[in-house]
């Protein structure tokens, strides 16, 4: 941390070094920006920036490589855990994370995330769940709430037609290769702080080579949901958390095969 010397005020919070100094393409009030900031704060605090390789996904966060001062590999839609597996196995001393939306991780990428967890890969999946396909115009995702109106479920998600919301993080927590699975949110200032502690625990367990780690963050998509940013965060707090309860789902200090 550098101390600002331009005036005599003492800095207690400033933009993390691990973020590039540029404006993001995200819509106003989008939680992706908050999650980026938390991740960057941890890169600073844990001194990870110089040996981190991020694996991007497809969705609104497709340009995440523009915003972190880490190396980055872009992957095809849903395949980030497979790409991260390869990266981590050939660069075992690196810190490797995927950054994926719910359309990416819980729909097209279901197989990749399940098997990365089953293999106990030493990677961390940062899973931003906004219940919708934000990038392509707000279509229904596997995570969309029952009754939720989207551009492809204009009358609200009907379970007879479209099934039930997929609690994928709970499902992944069952797999022995998963060292850590937790769900947080960025809906309120308090929850933002708690989400950071969940991410920190996951990062520490990857550093300890404990196995697969995933942190789901319940976020918003004000544009796709047709709400103001504050209303969308209130909706996460009041409604989304009811379907996806917050907390640590599993914390196995040592789950991965010893040879990793």
């Amino acid at each position: 941390m550098t101390v600002q010397l331009t005036d005599n005020r003492r800095v207690i919070y400033r933009r993390p070094d691990a973020l590039q100094d540029k404006s993001t393409h995200y819509c106003p009030g989008c939680g992706h920006g908050i999650v980026h900031r938390l991740v960057a704060e941890l890169f600073d605090e844990m001194k990870l920036t110089g040996r981190t390789i991020g694996v991007g996904s497809v969705g609104c966060s497709v340009f995440a490589y523009e915003y972190f001062k880490t190396d980055f590999v872009e992957s095809p839609h849903g395949r980030a855990p497979a790409v991260a597996t390869g990266v981590r196995r050939v660069q075992p001393d690196k810190f490797v994370f995927t950054y994926q939306g719910d359309g990416d991780l819980a729909a097209i990428g279901t197989a990749e995330i399940v098997h990365a967890a089953a293999r106990g890969e030493n990677i961390t999946a940062i899973f931003v769940n906004n219940g919708i396909y934000g990038m392509t115009g707000g279509q229904m995702a596997p995570t969309t709430l029952l009754g939720q109106k989207t551009t492809s479920s204009p009358l609200g998600r009907d379970p007879v037609l479209a099934g039930y919301p997929v609690p994928i993080t709970e499902m992944l927590a069952l797999v022995p290769g998963t060292a850590y699975a937790a769900r947080g949110s960025v809906a309120t200032p308090q929850l933002v702080g708690r989400a950071k502690s969940l991410l920190k625990r996951a990062f520490e367990l990857q550093e300890a080579k404990a196995g697969f780690t995933i942190v789901e963050i319940l976020s918003n998509c004000p544009v796709g949901w047709g709400m103001t940013a504050p209303a969308s965060m209130e909706h996460v707090e009041k409604d989304v958390i009811g379907t996806y309860p917050l907390g640590v789902l599993v914390d196995r200090a040592k789950a991965g095969p010893e040879s990793k």
């Binding site: 005020r9 003492r10 800095v11 207690i12 919070y13 400033r14 933009r15 993390p16 973020l19 404006s23 993001t24 995200y26 106003p28 009030g29 989008c30 939680g31 992706h32 920006g33 908050i34 900031r37 960025v186 309120t188 200032p189 933002v192 702080g193």
Partner: peptide, 21 residues
Amino acid sequence: TSCVICARVCPDTVFTVYARP
């Protein structure tokens, strides 16, 4: 009060917060 809450919720990291002398 320099509580940092605004910085915590900001998606665009616009705030630098200073301690009150």
